[in-house]
Simulated assay, not measured.
Amino acid sequence: MSKLKNFKLITAGIAFAFLWSSASTATKIGLTSAQPFVISIFRFLFAGGIMLFVTHIVLQNRLPVKREWIQISIYGFLNITFYLGLYVIAMQQVSAGLGSLAVATNPVFIALMSAFWFSHKIKYKNVLSLLLCFIGVVLAAYPLLESSYATPLGIIILLVSMIAYSLGTIYYSRVNWNDLPILTINGWQTILGGVFLLPVLYATYDPKKNSFDTSFWASVCWLAIPVSIGAVQFWLYLLKNNPIKASYWLFLCPIFGFLIAHLIMKEPISIYTFIGVAFVVCGLYIVQKKIKL
C-alpha cells in the first residue's frame, strides 16, 4: 500500500470515528425536543435529498438499475431502518457515552460473522488488536459506567441495533455494486431507509411531544450532514478498501464519544479515558500495519 493511500485511509478513519461518535450526543439533544422517529425521518429525508441532488443533478451519475434497487433496499433496511431506527429508541434509555460505547462491539460482530459465514481467517494480529482495543474501550468507559444510567430494555435494543449494523456492513462488502458511486448508494439507502420508517412514525406520532425549536433543528442538521453524509461517505470508502480493517476504526468512536459527551453533556472523563485511548491506538496500529503475527 502506498504512503498516500495509507494516509488517506487513516485520515478517513479518524474523520469517520469523530463524526460518527458525535451522533449519540446530537441525538440526546434532539430527544429533548422531539420523538425519536420524528428526528430520524427529518434526518434521513434531509440527508438523502442532498446526496441525491449532488450525485444525480450536479455530478450527473446514473440511477441504480434492476437488481441494484433490491440491493440498496436491503442495505437501507439494515443500515438505516433497523439499525438507526432502534438506535434512536435506545438513546432514550441510555446515556450518550454508553451509546458510543456500544459501537465498539461492532468489530467483534463483524469479525465473527465474517469468519462464520464467509470462512474469513482471523489472524493472530487481529485477535491481539481486538483484545487491546476492547480493553481500551472498557478502561475508557469505566467512570461512565459508574455514573451513567441505563435500563435493561435500552441495552438490549442497543445491542440488537449493533447486530443490524454489523449485518449491513457485511452485506455491503459482499455485494457487487457494479461501480455504482458511493454517494448514489448512500443517498438512496438513506432515503429508502427513511421511507421504511414512515408507517412506524404514523403509528406513534404525538404532536404534543414535538417542538421544532433550535435544539431540534440543530440536532437534525448535524445528524443529516456531518453524520449521515460525511461519516457514512468515509465509512463506505473504508469498507470498499477492506471491511475487516475498516471495522477497527469503530473502536475510536467511544473515545471520541466520551470526549464530546464530556464537553457538551458534562459526562465524566478521567485518567482511565487516556489509558484507554493508548490501548485503542496500539490496537489500531497493529491491525493497520503489516506486522507478522
Score class of each variant (00 low, 15 high):
Ser270Tyr: 08
Tyr172Asp: 04
Phe212Gln: 02
Lys289Trp: 04
Thr214Phe: 11
His120Ser: 08
Trp249His: 14
Trp20Asp: 07
Asp179Lys: 15
Ser219Leu: 09
Ile191Trp: 01
Ala141Phe: 14
Gly13Asp: 07
Ile29Ala: 00
Thr81Trp: 07
Cys253Asp: 11
Asn126Pro: 00
Val138Gln: 01
Ala115Arg: 09
Val127Phe: 11
Ile10Thr: 06
Ser166His: 03
Phe42Leu: 08
Ala104Gly: 04
Val65Trp: 03
Ile135Thr: 14
Leu4Pro: 00
Pro107Asn: 10
Ile182Ala: 14
Thr55Asn: 03
Gly99Ile: 10
Pro152Trp: 12
Phe251Thr: 10
Ala26Pro: 02
Gln288Tyr: 08
Val54Glu: 02
Ile155Thr: 03
Leu84Asp: 01
Val38Glu: 01
Asp179Arg: 13
Ile157Trp: 08
Pro268His: 04
Ser114Gly: 15
Tyr165Pro: 00
Ala141Gly: 12
Ala111Leu: 15
Lys66Tyr: 06
Trp117Thr: 09
Asn126Gln: 15
Pro64Tyr: 11
Val137Leu: 04
Lys289Tyr: 08
Ala203Glu: 09
Leu144Trp: 00
Asn61Val: 01
Lys66Ile: 02
Phe234Lys: 06
Leu101Ala: 14
Ser215Pro: 01
Phe251Ile: 06
Gly283Gln: 06
Trp188Thr: 01
Leu78Trp: 11
Gly276Met: 07
Leu86Val: 02
Val138Asp: 00
Lys292Val: 15
Thr105Phe: 08
Asn186Gln: 12
Tyr248Arg: 13
Met51Tyr: 04
Ser21Ala: 14
Lys240Val: 05
Lys208Pro: 00
Leu167Thr: 11
Gln189Ala: 05
Gly136Ile: 02
Pro199Thr: 11
Ile286Met: 08
Ile185His: 06
Val175Ser: 03
Ser22Phe: 04
Cys253Lys: 06
Cys133Gln: 05
Ile50Ser: 01
Phe118Leu: 10
Tyr142Arg: 10
Pro207Ala: 10
Ala246Pro: 02
Thr151Val: 05
Thr184His: 08
Leu236Gly: 12
Ile182Glu: 12
Phe216Gln: 04
Ile41Tyr: 03
Ala261Cys: 10
Thr11Leu: 13
Val58Gly: 00
Val195Pro: 04
Tyr83His: 15
Lys8Leu: 12
Ser270Asn: 14
Lys208Ala: 11
Leu236Ala: 08
Gln92Trp: 00
Val137Gly: 07
Cys133Arg: 06
Thr105Met: 11
Ala141Thr: 14
Asn106Tyr: 00
Lys123Ser: 15
Ile41Gln: 09
Ala141Pro: 06
